[in-house]
Design a protein around this nucleic acid. Structure first.
Lengths: 149, 149
DNA sequence: GGAATTTCTATGACGTGTCAACGAGGTGTA
DNA sequence: TACACCTCGTTGACACGTCATAGAAATTCC
């Protein structure tokens, strides 16, 4: 349909890249679910929370850090709380606020998940790139991701 | 968390690429919704159906072509039928089967959407790659997407 | 021909993400 | 102080994708 407005090269590159855009996250997500029972979103929340020394982060700040909407994080945090991965505490600085806290269980789950996830990222992605490709991909990814929304 | 098992270069490249993996589809999807009221999934169904001369495709074949599960396409087709973009016909060859047919309305919507979508793909992606990058990206995307699941 | 098996679509439950709206709480200003 | 305004998290409705399952029809095999 839109072939007419892309050159042959652009068309092929775009089609190939679009396949990657779909296949790679799907594979990593399946690996994660199979190995650890986590969704990619779960993993991101857990690993971002674990970066803080006290494993605590205000909801709004965590949302901003991950570039999620507050609504999304609120929904997701509620589900993760139900599974005992995190819990919520009132924010002493701001009565509207909410502090998310990585539980010991959540931390253990993350510790178990992380090495498998690294193997997955390697075997499904990094291992198949040479250093030049890695460098170029990083440059181009940064350039495009940094464009305004 | 997993930084320890990736080299500095790998870590940075993976982080940058992951941002692209999230940001690019989100931007294209927002453009599509704003310009045409279509989801990316809608657009894929419409444009794939439009490739057939008679605008008809058996559900199972369309699903295979797009690499979707049949369940996904069945759900999605039901929603699209509700909006008048496609309709369903019995398959004369196979009484279990189902032929999806792009309606005139659906075709018009696609015709309106396509040029905007091309502009979007250009302005958010293709315009920011030089020919070398385009070629390398195509090669690497094909290589990785072609890995077994 | 007839039974077992496979193929095909539909469906319901569930987790997920977006959007719009809400109420409660903070902030700034007259 | 009083008021308007903004920020924070939650909620409900909806679209979406996956999985397991069901039921009908085709195919295979004896």
């Amino acid at each position: 349909m839109d072939a007419a407005w892309l050159s042959e090269d652009e068309e092929h590159a775009w089609r190939a890249f679009r396949r990657l855009l779909i296949a790679l996250p799907a594979r990593l997500g399946r690996d994660l679910a199979r190995n650890s029972g986590l969704s990619p979103a779960d993993y991101e929340v857990l690993s971002t929370l674990s970066e803080k020394p006290n494993r605590r982060w205000a909801l709004k700040d965590l949302a901003a850090k991950m570039e999620w909407s507050r609504s999304r994080l609120s929904h997701h945090a509620a589900r993760m709380q139900g599974r005992g991965l995190i819990d919520k505490e009132p924010d002493p600085q701001d009565a509207r606020g909410c502090i998310l806290h990585l539980t010991d269980d959540g931390f253990r789950v993350l510790e178990d998940a992380a090495p498998h996830h690294v193997v997955s990222v390697r075997s499904r992605f990094l291992d198949h790139l040479n250093p030049d490709e890695l460098a170029m991909l990083r440059k181009l990814s940064t350039r495009i991701a940094d464009l305004p929304d």
